[in-house]
Design a protein around this nucleic acid. Structure first.
Lengths: 252, 252
DNA sequence: ATCTGTATGTGCGCTGGCACACAGATGGCA
DNA sequence: TGCCATCTGTGTGCCAGCGCACATACAGAT
């Protein structure tokens, strides 16, 4: 597999808050108010932003990382509830008023995010301006994703779910490479690693992806979409509806 | 099976908005503002409040009915995403800003609800007062329920899920009887009717429930909780935390 | 160049839930 | 009273996904 420059985010790269689509939707006025309090933080693979029940101290606006919201059961097995990238933020419970959630937030793909202290977030939120409305629309998109995850878990095969999962990840990356072992994917989907091996092997045979030792490259996205269940499309369509992407896409 | 007075809600019964726990949490001031616009409506079994994609015209505050949020797939099979009773409201998309959702809302247990036009709801919501904060906390409870549904669908047996489902329903009823065929439960859980028959038969053998032709009576709630997966307790605990003044008490 | 840990491939038996088919039970209604 | 739609029980065959055990393959370190 070829060297992938973007697999390891360069620390030197120029970051700006507007790489996050929510921040970029804010008016200049609100953004200026927030800017002094937005802190760029590194998001290494596996970092846990919060555990189930933790009181959230920050909200995170990813720029080029991906964060999974994961539920971990008493016996240790897990299931991904939803995934957040540059289109969203981690920590809706802060402004929803609950302060904590029953899930864990863990970095699934390394990168960076801007974080904002819970208090600053609430201050701005409580001004009842555009930030509030934007956050609510995003929350609804998140709800849609969770609902669809429930449906998918009930009705679709591992292969279909893998396709969905790959597509959701792909949409949050700047290229078609992801760093992710089959073992980790299995944890996300809540299935056996061997099941992922089998599904991934099949996708590889069909020329849709190729992978090796934790690096996955999607070579035929169109086919991937065909092989996926309807769940991906439902979530994507609804997210686009709720958060029509601003003209500046944020890429390069 | 004994006659159950509340199985068929009496039209003559006195209803008041504060039977809904969200409405009952509002201050006198806000409630007085809303009262003239709250309209008592009958909620017959099977009534569809809205379909996937519909623009919502009302929010519904159930008093003694139960509403399921159901996702229906392209091939017609379905899965329940969450359930709403007197502790909540149907139509969060209205104030979340999306105006519609990808799921269907359907009455699972007949009764009544107070409805409020979308515009009135938004007007009050936009005053940015207590209603807003209350709605957000409720939304988070709903999110928790959806997340747990996803987990449950992935990891637990039909019997465990049936227990969870019965408990969620029970908490929203005034007695221990529910009117619900195994066929309908199967649609909710997104499983085969035969699977529900088997699980229900087992629960009956263990003396936890007894049922016949669409009437289910829970005779041993404690055991039902023991047989359920952790998902029920997680949702209940979190709901109680988020909406403390209105603990869903369960039945005697 | 070898070692070693991590990642992936494979085989086997098992079980839960599926699809389909049909039999029995029951209650509402003519 | 008897009919009939609806609801529930059961059986058979099938397969996806599981748990377990182990065989490879590869990458990076020494």
């Amino acid at each position: 597999m070829s060297e992938s420059a973007s697999s390891k985010p360069s620390i030197e790269r120029q970051h700006k808050p507007t790489e996050n689509h929510l921040l970029s939707e804010l008016s200049e006025e609100v953004l200026q108010r927030l800017l002094p309090h937005l802190e760029l933080v590194e998001m290494p693979l596996g970092k846990v932003l919060y555990e189930s029940g933790d009181v959230l101290r920050y909200v995170y606006f990813p720029t080029d990382c991906i964060v999974s919201l994961l539920y971990v059961m008493e016996n240790g097995s897990s299931a991904e509830i939803s995934v957040v990238g540059f289109e969203g933020l981690v920590g809706v419970a802060l402004f929803m008023g609950g302060e904590s959630t029953t899930s864990r937030a863990i970095v699934q793909s390394a990168g960076y995010a801007y974080r904002l202290s819970g208090q600053r977030m609430k201050d701005e939120f409580n001004r009842h301006g555009e930030l509030l409305m934007l956050m609510l629309r995003y929350s609804q998109a998140l709800i849609t994703q969770m609902a669809q995850t429930a449906v998918c878990n009930r009705h679709h095969s591992i292969e279909q779910q893998l396709c969905r999962w790959l597509l959701l990840s792909l949409d949050r990356l700047k290229d078609s490479h992801l760093l992710m072992t089959q073992e980790l994917i299995a944890n996300m989907l809540g299935v056996r690693r061997e099941g992922v091996t089998e599904a991934a092997g099949h996708l590889q045979k069909m020329g849709v992806i190729d992978y090796s030792r934790g690096r996955i490259h999607v070579s035929n996205r169109v086919k991937l979409e065909q092989l996926s269940c309807e769940c991906y499309a439902v979530v994507k369509k609804e997210t686009d509806r709720l958060l029509p992407r601003n003209k500046v896409t944020g890429n390069k």
